[in-house]
Nucleic acid binder design. Structure first.
Length: 447
DNA sequence: CAGGTC
DNA sequence: GCTGG
């Protein structure tokens, strides 16, 4: 078993935060291990508190992150002739190249965020108030994995999607290797600490499985197996999608990759041919595995933003959300956010996840004085008509008051048109909400 | 109720 | 409407 062949890349957490992006519901495949505190901190890597690992077809990619560095190493099966740990410079180079592509490190996220803040008041407000997570970028995933994951995502939550995808890999693909993150203290020396297999001090080395190809799901036994694994009605979707892929294309994965070269609309059409793939799932695949950076998938969270933060009428989640409203809402958001709107969406989406927000939202040390923002009422379904007054105010002075004033205007118009009902504010809004409003809601029994 | 779809 | 974190 390999050990201690870390290399590192200079990396600011504002450009890439593993802790944020790998838990934000883009990829469902990463394994997270919390590291025990080292006995003594003798080098930078000892400061890392978590390790992340992903099993590729031939190796396990292992990552750790500190305030200044991204540490990486590849672990190969012991049977591989090229040694159990990678000293082979050629193999090492392929790992760093994979990392650069997967995390799209050629894209300057900090620059993008500065652009978004300059063009979108809602975004700049969130940046000022401190409710937007840093280091959230769009991953460039394997299209088949991405397609599989998001077929599983319908009417489902991130935790269960993750467990489903993991169990699929475990039951449909043989293990590549077993591995257990060594304690930091063992890592620091760079020595081999696990020479013998009788070193049973460690309890459970974990088996890592590559993600199974489409052909693994074409057998008739697939559906009952997936059902037994808890895939529910998605079992049939997976099987049918895999069959269509395998029957229509000699190299299914290469076919999916080829969609990258098509215009966005054509690529979306192709994806919609698969069972279990609707507009939302197709858009996720386009954005997160086919390089369509401008695509904004509209899920319940983003629909919530569109309504409450941007005053767009969408007709609510799922039901009532007609195809044309989906498209209009998308184009409006793309108008506000620009050519990288899909990336903007990723930041807002991640920042709205409660289990991630807790990592930066510390109620005792509020970044600014709480200000009053009223929450837009819930919008009842009704046909067509996006709020016409929707627009981004001209640049100029970008004071917080100005931002809030314009939001109040939006709110009033929405109330007049649509009437009563109230939606739960997201954590984004809660941060900038007055204590008074918070108490009011609590009295109503909502929190 | 959850990153919707048939 | 599947189903479990």
């Amino acid at each position: 078993m390999a050990l201690a062949h870390w290399r590192s890349l200079s990396m600011s957490p504002s450009q890439l935060s593993l802790a944020h992006v790998l838990k934000s519901g883009q990829s469902f495949r990463w394994t997270l291990t919390r590291l025990a505190p080292p006995e003594k901190v003798s080098q930078d890597i000892d400061l890392a508190t978590e390790e992340y690992s992903l099993c590729l077809s031939d190796r396990l990619v292992v990552l750790r992150q500190t305030a200044t560095q991204l540490y990486y190493q590849a672990i190969f099966p012991a049977s591989s002739a090229s040694a159990a740990f990678t000293t082979d410079p050629k193999l090492d180079r392929t790992t760093i190249e994979w990392i650069k592509k997967y995390f799209q490190l050629d894209v300057d996220l900090v620059q993008l965020e500065s652009d978004w803040a300059a063009r979108d008041q809602v975004y700049s407000k969130g940046k000022q108030v401190g409710t937007l997570l840093p280091g959230v970028r769009v991953l460039n995933q394997d299209p088949w994995e991405c397609l599989f994951g998001f077929i599983c995502s319908s009417n489902n939550n991130i935790a269960r999607i993750t467990s489903m995808v993991q169990s699929a890999a475990h039951h449909f693909s043989p293990p590549l290797l077993t591995y257990q993150p060594p304690p930091s203290s063992q890592v620091t020396g760079g020595a081999i600490a696990a020479a013998a297999s009788d070193m049973t001090v460690s309890a459970n080395p974990k088996a890592y499985h590559p993600f199974p190809p489409p052909s693994s799901f074409t057998d008739a036994s697939t559906v009952p197996t997936l059902l037994s694994l808890g895939f529910g009605y998605r079992s049939k979707f997976i099987h049918q999608t895999a069959r269509l892929l395998v029957e229509s294309h000699s190299d299914p994965q290469k076919y999916l990759e080829s969609l990258r070269a098509l215009p966005t609309d054509k690529a979306r059409e192709a994806l919609l041919e698969f069972t279990g793939v609707g507009p939302k799932v197709a858009d996720c695949v386009l954005l997160m595995s086919l390089g369509k950076k401008e695509v904004v998938p509209l899920d319940v969270h983003v629909v919530g933003f569109a309504e409450r933060l941007y005053g767009l009428r969408t007709g609510g989640k799922g039901k009532g959300m007609t195809k044309s409203v989906y498209g209009i809402t998308q184009s409006k958001l793309r108008e506000v956010w620009g050519d990288w709107a899909g990336w903007t969406q990723a930041v807002l989406f991640a920042s709205d996840l409660p289990f991630l927000m807790s990592s930066i939202a510390n109620p005792t040390t509020r970044p600014i004085k709480p200000v009053k923002i009223k929450v837009l009422p819930k919008i009842e379904s009704s046909e067509s008509s996006i709020i016409t007054s929707f627009s981004v105010e001209a640049k100029g002075e970008l004071t917080l008051e100005g931002v809030l004033a314009s939001e109040r205007i939006n709110k009033r118009e929405t109330v007049e048109r649509i009437g009563q009902g109230e939606s739960k504010p997201s954590s984004l809004e809660l941060e900038a909400e007055s204590m008074g409003d918070r108490i009011k809601r609590r009295r109503r029994g909502e929190l």
